[in-house]
Design a protein around this nucleic acid. Sequence first.
DNA 1: CGCCGCGTACATCCTTCGATCGACGCCGGG
DNA 2: CCCGGCGTCGATCGAAGGATGTACGCGGCG
Lengths: 218, 218
Amino acid sequence: MTDAPVRVVVADDQAAIRTGLVLILGSAPGIEVVAEAADGLGAVAEAVRLRPDVVLMDIRMPGIDGIEATRRLVGDGVCDVLVLTTFDLDDYIDDALAAGAAGFLLKTVEAPALIAAVRSVARGDGVLAPEVTRRVLARLPAPTAPAPAQVPGLDELTAREREILGCLGEGLSNAEIAARLVITEATTKTHVSRVLTKLGLRSRVQAAIAARSAGLAG
Amino acid sequence: MTDAPVRVVVADDQAAIRTGLVLILGSAPGIEVVAEAADGLGAVAEAVRLRPDVVLMDIRMPGIDGIEATRRLVGDGVCDVLVLTTFDLDDYIDDALAAGAAGFLLKTVEAPALIAAVRSVARGDGVLAPEVTRRVLARLPAPTAPAPAQVPGLDELTAREREILGCLGEGLSNAEIAARLVITEATTKTHVSRVLTKLGLRSRVQAAIAARSAGLAG
DNA sequence: CGCCGCGTACATCCTTCGATCGACGCCGGG
DNA sequence: CCCGGCGTCGATCGAAGGATGTACGCGGCG
């Protein structure tokens, strides 16, 4: 299983860098560079044709850039992409990751780390350059709780009350909620009151905020 | 500068593993293991006493676990923590990162990678085990687009009105807004009315939603 | 069966909200 | 200088919201 070589396409518009990358990867056992490309379109074409395990993708390239090429390859499920760039810019990182890149490295990477990164991506894992990892981590303060955002009494709500809360999160008035749920406005008010009491809130505005942070509304 | 050795505290309750880690790190040039600990409290105590560059922290430990120990060390700004665990569980990863860990590795890591990781963390960078990187990345789909949410008439608001909108986004009542901005409730109502008119909304609840989606409130 | 908890429903009462007036002082530009 | 935009304050009034109390149907349980 592990003896099948990792097939890689290298895409970079600068011939010198491209050659260097090819040499580094080619020298690694178990890694085979099957094609090179000098622009985004070429990278996509070669990847579609050869179905490599990994595309090592530069960002700044003529025509469509590495980000767009990554988006296409990942979007179509062609292969994994390891983005490699000279510039440690947040925008690049965000765009690359949003495009679905499996990894993001800087060109300051040493050869052994590059080789390890390619192997990781081929294995289905991900890679982040240490220089950017901390910044990425810092911007993910709520990975464990975006959906179940802490709303203390949320679990005490009945299904109906949760429904009410969802409506509140959409900014509906009592009359609108009543119409949607086919109940009287008086009943709606009762539910709203219960929701507020159970959640310890003082107004429907706060309930709306809670509802949205809990993911109960758009 | 770079010749000052990286000082490390190793915390793991299993003596065999701890010894292995110490040997690996001790054999690396430029890395010095200054203390060992067998539980979370010990790790915190040693770190506070010795002020190392990095604490290599196991999660499952007697007394307070590695997560809590990490929280304390990072919270107090004592040092960076590299979390190391046997189990590739999302909960562990989330908790560790939420606690402020600079890195997260699995004990399947090879010696050279462990050494590189310690150096990265000491340099102020971050490290994620490749096995977990992809999962972490997958849960970060909107780093580039949460701030600039489209709110049509937002640019027509005056500075004061934007301030009002921010308060609305926090769920404050007119009286509370008045108190915070040191104006009369009557004035507050005037502003709120203007905001609603300019934004084409029908209630403060919708304004609160708009405010939050525009990033004007927490 | 009777009791109780729960969800649902309605009515009553008071507060808050929101719209719509009018008014004043301040500033900056025509 | 006068005008207009902005921020402030006030008053009124109808609509909406929120608290509180009551009531009914349903299910489980002793």
